[in-house]
Design a protein around this nucleic acid. Sequence first.
RNA 1: GCGCCCGUAGCUCAGUUGGACAGAGCAACAGCCUUCUAAGCUGUGGGCCACAGGUUCGAAUCCUGUCGGGCGUACCA
Length: 547
Amino acid sequence: MINEYLQPIFTNALTKLGITPDEPIVFEAPKIAEHGDASTNIAMKLAKTMRDNPRNIAEKIIANLEIDSHFIAAVESAGAGFINIRFANAFFQNAIAEFAQIGESFGKSNYGKGKSVNVEYVSVNPTGLLHLGHGRNACIGDTIANLYAAIGYDVTREYYFNNAGNQMNILAKSIYTRYRQQLDEPDYPFPEDGYHGDYVREIAAGLVSEVGSSLIAGTPEDLTKCRKFGEEWCFAKIKQTLERMNIHQDLYFNEDTLYSDGKIEQVIADFRKLGLAYEKESALWLAFSQLGLKDDRVIVKSSGEPTYRLPDIAYHREKFNRGYDLLVDVFGADHIATVPDVMAGLRALGYEPDKVKVLIHQFVTLTENGQQVKMSKRTGKNYTLDDLLDEVGEDVVRFFLIMRGISTHMEFDLGLAREQSDKNPVFYLQYAHARICSVFENAKEKGIYVSDKPDYSLLNHDTEINLIKSLNTFPDAVLASAMKFEPQILAENLRQLATDFHFFYHECRILQAEEELMQARLGLIRVVRFALYNGLSILGVKAPERM
RNA sequence: GCGCCCGUAGCUCAGUUGGACAGAGCAACAGCCUUCUAAGCUGUGGGCCACAGGUUCGAAUCCUGUCGGGCGUACCA
């Protein structure tokens, strides 16, 4: 809003000076309050082409500005050639009136109207339970999806899985072993590469009570039953955990359908047609070296099974063909190797990889008293996402897992999480929301009529103006958070908004104020509530009315 | 060896397309509740932004190299 207001005023001044800038003028909020509400470095940018020093240029620009002194209080040059702009209170009073009119959709936009995005996340194969790393993936993906929904995109949330691969067979064998151990043979040997997790015992116990000893022979059909039972059990658990975190995906895409629908064969045929696929040592290779990558890779093993690259390419092609404007993949750092291969493959098939945004998040290190806790599914000792949700609650987990940039290596200390969960910043935001609700509740009890059109020009207290400034940044933060694929930007903005609200709340009485002022303040905090509510909802966190 | 990510306050981390004296939370210390929720507010201390060069009006941010950590580098996914 500040940018929209200043842009024409400055462009006009430059035009008068005979300058047509090739890029829009950038206004930013100075870190230091004395530097005003907005600042531009345009004079410094022009210094080279104009062959003049930035201070002189700044003065010339300022002299040519046509300023409405009702809204702009001061414009001055400073420092190395910055132009600082300070708004009058009227500017912000005007702004809050606009925000109030927007009402409950404050912060949302129709930036992406008519455009569609597919966000693929979680995508864990049903061979075990979700752990903390999956949680980070899930929370990032879901928040990204929410962000794009908030800026007007048509969003599809997708979960990709494979219930046919080798890992599933290993799970089947592991289940069968536990089944036998529980049924008749306590020393039945456990497969070397099997899943050691306790949950496998649970699955086996479930199997025992469901089918008794009918699978004891261990025929291939019996193992298939073990696998099927395990798959369903794991999926139910995974979905249950996601449900707890308020995550609901629209589409579960089974890799298997790529085979049954001939999509895999089609990709192979197309690569052959392009002369990019060749046989060597009874495997099928793809000539990635002709696609700008270093080495050729196997896409179909000598056993006849494809490697992960092939279905990944076929799957992305499938998503492309569904016609989305944007495809987002959320992967953990361990899957980074697949990205260049898939992109190169897609490009060769005639698709535009720029439409795909791959978000690689780094790992979460789980520690307890300084010691690392392993989360692996295979080694057995596993601390699951459910365990964490039980300990600290859904809101803390969701907020914690997105409050840092996705590329940072997060450390999660269990002891600290237990001890500090009540100090988690998420409560700070929720508390601000609850406080506002409480004020309205009190107003209602006192029979106070709340006006829809209060006189916002009565808001002149520093903390009021400051709060409006803070609100002013919220819609931009939602947009920036989406465009940059960084949920953390929104989390940080909300924290600042809550700070500014708490400060205002401490300084200014609302219901005890004189009638007109009270109405203006109620109007103000109503907008703050919409911002907090919308922001928290995007982050998948509850906005309680009472705490 | 090569590729990606990271190294900022005691701890966990922010830091917009390079901008003005480097920020927040937690921890520590000192204050604020007969008044709309003290899960709050105010104040204090705390830094060779890993290290060394380079680019420029200006670098935590961009480039090169070094050191340290994470993840990859399969006919596993």
